[in-house]
Simulated assay, not measured.
Amino acid sequence: MSVSLSLDDLGQRICIIGPSNSGKSTLAKAIGRKKSLPLVHLDQLHHQPSSQWVPRKAEDFLRLHEEAVGEENWVMEGNYAKCIHPRLARATGLILLDISRSTALCRYIIRCYSSKPRIGGIGIQTESISWVMMKHILYHSPRNHLRYRALFEQSTLPKLMLSTPRAVNTYYKEWKLNE
């Protein structure tokens, strides 16, 4: 596979979207480190720290989101459809991780049994398997896939859709994100 989009083509405000457990946080961290960009995990803005995923008040989240989006440079990962349009309006590049439900589900289960802290997490040492999250991955993500793809297709930004772990790994190598 030949890489057709360089990391520099995506600019200094890169938005990464995709289903839960698709690798958004890990990719954002690698890009942020490579390009020296501030890293924004939307889950950390949306949820109270160390809270077992308790959301902040909507107005607090939207204020934090607006402040982050207004910064000059960033790599921002997460979805949160209620505020995605202002984010895309400021972004200079877009990456859609469009992986399968089965891959997302496997990653979620592995993450719950891992002793490593979750990249982009909210300060919880370990996560337990949640039926709510499994239901989200299996039943809500397919509808979200369609929404993400539509946003991707409509976007005029430099953009990249990665649909398999192999495709993601190809870009990690080509962009030298593991260095």
Rank of each mutant, 00 (worst) to 15 (best):
S141Y: 01
Y171E: 00
N73C: 05
E153W: 01
L138P: 05
L97R: 01
P158W: 02
Y108P: 04
A91Q: 07
Q125T: 06
C83I: 04
L162H: 05
H136Y: 15
P117H: 14
G78T: 06
N79D: 12
G93E: 09
I95S: 04
C112H: 06
K135N: 05
R107W: 15
F152G: 14
L162E: 03
L105M: 10
E66I: 03
W175V: 01
N73A: 03
T103R: 05
P117T: 13
A81D: 02
L160F: 01
R149I: 07
I129E: 02
E153P: 00
L94W: 00
Q154T: 03
E77V: 15
R101S: 11
T126A: 09
G70Y: 00
S128Q: 14
A89T: 08
K116T: 15
H140Q: 15
G78E: 05
Q125W: 12
N169H: 08
R147M: 05
P117M: 09
N144L: 14
V75R: 07
A68L: 02
L160R: 08
Y113D: 02
T126Q: 10
P158V: 12
E77G: 06
S130T: 13
E174M: 12
H140K: 15
P158M: 07
L105D: 05
T103S: 12
Y139V: 13
I122C: 10
I84T: 11
C112V: 04
T103N: 09
S100Y: 13
L138S: 08
I109C: 03
R166F: 12
P158I: 09
Q125P: 02
M76R: 00
L146V: 04
A89S: 14
S130M: 13
